[in-house]
Design a protein around this nucleic acid. Structure first.
Length: 421
DNA sequence: TCTGGGGTCCTAGGACCC
DNA sequence: TCTGGGGTCCTAGGACCC
């Protein structure tokens, strides 16, 4: 049996842990730049708000309905996620962290009744972190996903739904709309509906050849999973990242190259830090800039340039310098830039790199130690940017909007929760 | 005024090799 | 006049996920 643990309305739940008065209130969390709605409480969903709504379009209606709004506080969510995962790990043989709010869990049969085991797990996570969890058990990942949806949707399950027979699987699939199947996306759902396939069960009952005709190999895999044949493997050890990107929309359009440079330096810095944390180096680095794609009256421009580094690296100074070079290749004066980003493409394990014949190995080692020192100094949340490249300037401060920011309750001592008694 | 960010996988087609 | 067969690698674009 495979379990899927899924935190309910995760970002909203994180905010509620520290603002318990919001437990039955409509709450929303916004994307970067306070742009779109990315998470909603059930109360906010009931009011008709949806994930992806541009905030400026619904702002008035949200205020009129007393919706409490937060700018995304992802450092808080990451920390809360870690706490949840720690508990899952303590209960299970192995877990596969699938996203910030989801993990596949693997337990052996000695746990006895999966329902009892699951409810104990849900209770513990709720008690120790404040986060509500939905848990689904089934024979494949796709069916476990489906089970967790039931656990979330129907309170009668008390957080845990177990699919442990073909009959239960068929019943659950008959009640699941085709677009709710993991792997059937926005594009394929209408295609299937046109073929008369409207439920997961109808998809499962097709022949393999027919699935291959409509879909492709990906569809066949999904079809097998629905029929109880497991073909999506466990990934207990997180696979090495192949690309690492940092990009961000700006509050106002940016016209000056020098302002873009500070943003690009910030992104490259953040990419470098993440490369080092994952023990990888980048062979190439890509920079893109884009105008506001929603503006129909202004001239549009998008461009990206990928630059091969002399030597694969995770060195912030080298990445920043390379990113600036790439920026020079794509920047055109006269446009108002709304978005830009830096991607480390072609990442490879740092210890497997073959350096160029002409590179100075002593210098590489010195720079590696320099970065290690920089990371140590910047490690504490209070010193995050204590040591940084000068071209970052003030970084992204002032370039992006965050009007509803909550505190870093769990990682900064001067922002911890205050209790009045 | 105001519209997110970060990933993966698969496929078709072109370049190139012998 | 006649113009092969069999491979690999890479990339861009499209689909999906959270």
């Amino acid at each position: 049996m495979i379990g899927l643990a899924d935190c309910n309305n995760f970002f909203v739940s994180c905010e509620r842990v520290f603002r318990p008065a919001l437990l039955d209130r409509p709450v929303m969390v916004l994307s970067n730049n306070d742009g779109c709605v990315v998470a909603l409480s059930n109360e906010a969903k009931a009011l008709g708000f949806k994930r992806g709504n541009p905030y400026f379009k619904i702002r008035e209606q949200a205020e009129a309905n007393g919706v409490v709004v937060f700018s995304g506080n992802h450092r808080l969510y990451e920390d809360m996620s870690g706490r949840v995962m720690t508990i899952l790990r303590s209960f299970c043989d192995e877990i596969e962290v699938y996203s910030v709010d989801e993990a596949f869990i693997f337990v052996n049969d000695t746990v006895g009744d999966f329902g009892d085991f699951g409810r104990e797990l849900v209770r513990t996570v709720r008690r120790d972190t404040g986060i509500p969890l939905s848990l689904g058990f089934a024979s494949t990942k796709t069916l476990a996903k489906l089970a967790s949806r039931f656990a979330k949707k129907y309170p009668g399950y008390r957080g845990v739904c177990v699919i442990d027979s073909p009959e239960k699987a068929r019943k659950a699939m008959a009640l699941t709309a085709i677009e709710d199947v993991w792997g059937v996306g926005r594009r394929n759902a209408p295609k299937l509906r046109r073929q008369g396939v409207t439920t997961a069960l109808q998809l499962a009952d097709m022949t393999e050849d027919r699935v291959m005709e409509i879909f492709d190999i990906v569809g066949v895999r999904m079809w097998k999973e629905l029929n109880g044949i497991s073909c999506i493997s466990r990934e207990i050890v997180p696979p090495q990242r192949k690309t690492i990107r940092c990009s961000c929309s700006f509050q106002d359009e940016i016209f000056e190259l020098e302002t873009l440079r500070t943003a690009i330096a910030s992104y490259a810095t953040s990419v470098g830090k993440r490369l080092r944390r994952q023990g990888v180096v980048a062979e190439t680095i890509e920079v893109f800039v884009a105008t506001n794609r929603f503006s129909s009256c202004r001239p549009q421009y998008f461009n990206a340039f990928e630059l091969r580094l002399d030597d694969p690296t995770a060195d912030t100074a080298l990445l920043v310098a390379a990113a600036q070079k790439a920026l020079d290749r794509v920047f055109r004066p006269g446009y108002g830039y709304k978005k830009a980003g830096v991607t480390a493409t072609r990442c490879v394990a740092a210890d497997s790199v073959v350096h160029s014949l002409f590179s100075d190995s002593g210098d590489i080692e010195r720079r590696r130690r320099l970065m290690a020192a920089l990371d140590r100094i910047n490690a504490s949340p209070a010193n995050r940017h204590a040591l940084h490249v000068a071209s970052m300037g003030p970084g992204l401060v002032g370039l992006t909007r965050r009007e509803h920011e909550s505190r870093l309750y769990t990682t900064r001592l001067d922002e911890i929760i205050e209790v009045k008694v």
